[in-house]
Design a protein around this nucleic acid. Structure first.
Lengths: 350, 350
DNA sequence: AATTAGCACTCAGGGATAGAGAGTGCTAAA
DNA sequence: TTTAGCACTCTCTATCCCTGAGTGCTAATT
């Protein structure tokens, strides 16, 4: 695998990304820093095809990169340009100022990626999983009607109305509230499980059976919290992309199949995954460029772009990279007073 | 515009709805209650085209109804069948029993419509606008961090976190809570206005300036409440419908453009609107069949189906009609224990 | 006057055919 | 080892032709 072959492979990918057409030996030979003839390139391309990095849609067509070709290009060959100051400040502006709420920050990043890359952008927020319950309240709001309020250390607030069979008196409500607080305060969202709530129901039933709807409500709320939040923006861009199978895109838009898993599995740093048969996220010729952002030192979610395999990696990767870093920076900034603001610091409800 | 022409127009629409193909004179002449020759029908169809009710995709193709044609068909020509008892009881079952919560009732209706019609269903809930504030709570949850909880008589619950510049002590929190309760409890959501909150800020500023973020938070929550809630279910059905432009459908699914407005504008009874350029709800060849349901004599929301213009109106309209009536009936029935369950009945938080 | 049968006409859609163009692999020369 | 030359392959596009469905018009019939 000599040096020139790698250079040619890189050139083929670049050209293909640029034009979308299978690229021939002549086109490569005309390129600036290639100083060999088309015939030589033909020989090398034949070799690259033999090795599995290129393929021909048909005899007498140019070459197109294979999965392997893209993989090698992305992992080894590609040279990423630095973002210009202009581009950086444009992104900063699109993210919003320093006092933008965290949730909006990530959403703005997705919107920015959609606009700049003309691809779909995807964001997840796994923050809830790493937070702890910081407050639980049960508030009577009508005949036999109670609202449960669940607040976590990262600022998520969930509520739910429950109807009981009987009204609770002061004493009963007090008892329940204290019981719940003792059992849930400070518990990590990840630890919450159905069994745990089942046990609570069992324990409480000796005191008062009719409390179980409240526990059930709590259980449902905790499920809400546990589930990662995933949002896809600009998915219509995928439809106008003729490299992708419209049916598959539609199926993806409907069910977001496999995305959660793949994003959860991802590790730090920029990663590129192909929507091949390997994983459950399967839009035929697609590519997912994703990176995780951090909050207070911990991975808190991910941010990425979904496009055709033939996307401009050189352009998109720096954008995704910059945005995740910026978001991580902004989040580490003022995150302390939310993360550490546990229930111990606060006054009881009057 | 003689009687036979109308009959033929109706037949063309029926056939086109059934087959999806442009319909020719021969097909019409073979129909049961048409007893004239194809030639006669050709003459009438030419006349109907002249009048703007039909059009030809190209010379020597059959005819297809125009907007105007559909409009006339829907408004005057179509004969709606009664639902059979079987169908009615099936719908009743899908709606859920008498004690189904109102919100779920409407959602079940949407699910039923999606399943039966294989189109998208849309529901709105304008109930919040006609409800009153039944409870407001301010709950400390961290350093200078407070959650405001707003509950209305119809069961909507909204919350929001606010950050203050200083922590409040018991006394201050008590004062604020009482002040808010006195000023907001029992106030209709429709009456809430920015000016009202501005006045509250002014009044409170003599006591404590730093409370204003809380009032601002309340103001934002009340805006959330005022805005109609809109849900679309089964929107994926629109994607598999090749009469509709996929791009437009995806854009619609993502942004629900214009739906709120059009649904708010609708008046009582079944209505059919076309997704043409006239209104902001613009999926090219689509049709929206919608009706309002009532609660305690008042319009409380709407219920509808979005499909291609070529939908089976005869089938869908009776379903939508029945469901809205049934929902209106169920809501007038047991609405009292929620509507009238104001804050006065309940115990203060322990 | 209204309806019908008959007929020529139009047009979309589906092969089939042919030529152009791009690109290749191979061979032989540099 | 590289390059030039050349025959070959295969897609793509345009063109033509044919078929079938459906029309509009005219003349005959009721």
């Amino acid at each position: 695998m000599d040096d020139r072959k790698l250079k040619i492979l890189a050139a083929v990918v670049d050209e293909y990304v640029r034009t979308g057409e299978p690229v021939g030996s002549k086109a490569i030979s005309k390129l600036e820093n290639i100083n060999v003839s088309a015939a030589t390139i033909r020989n090398d391309m034949a070799a690259l095809e033999q090795l599995g990095y290129l393929e021909q849609p048909h005899t007498s067509a140019g070459r197109v990169p294979t999965f392997m070709g893209y993989r090698l290009y992305i992992d080894e060959l590609m040279t990423l340009p630095e973002l210009s100051d202009d581009e950086k400040s444009r992104l900063d502006e699109m993210l919003g100022g320093e006092d933008t709420p965290e949730e909006l920050l990530v959403q703005n990043a997705a919107a920015a990626l959609t606009e700049i890359t003309q691809c779909a952008a995807v964001i997840t927020n796994s923050a809830p999983r790493f937070s702890v319950i910081s407050k639980v309240e049960v508030i009577p709001t009508g005949k036999r009607l109670y609202v449960i309020l669940l607040i976590t250390s990262n600022g998520s607030i969930k509520n739910k109305a429950c109807r009981l069979e009987f009204d609770l008196n002061h004493e009963q409500l007090d008892f329940f509230t204290h019981y719940i607080e003792e059992n849930l305060n400070g518990v990590s969202v990840d630890e919450l499980s159905e069994e745990m709530f089942d046990k609570m129901v069992a324990a409480l039933s000796t005191y008062m059976v009719s409390l179980s709807p409240l526990v059930k409500g709590l259980c449902e709320l905790s499920e809400d919290l546990r589930q990662q939040e995933l949002m896809v923006s600009g998915s219509e861009k995928l439809l106008s992309c003729d490299e992708l199978d419209k049916m598959e895109v539609v199926r993806f838009i409907e069910h977001k199949n496999g995305l959660t898993e793949i994003l959860e599995d991802a590790f730090s740093g920029i990663q590129v995954k192909f929507g091949s048969e390997n994983n459950s996220f399967a839009i035929g010729n697609s590519s997912l460029i994703v990176s995780k952002y951090r909050k207070g030192g911990r991975e808190a979610g991910s941010l990425g772009v979904i496009g055709p395999m033939r996307v401009d990696y050189k352009k998109i990767i720096p954008y995704v990279d910059y945005l995740t870093q910026k978001i991580s920076y902004l989040m580490s900034d003022d995150s302390d007073d939310i993360i550490t603001g546990t229930v111990d610091d606060i006054e009881p409800t009057p």
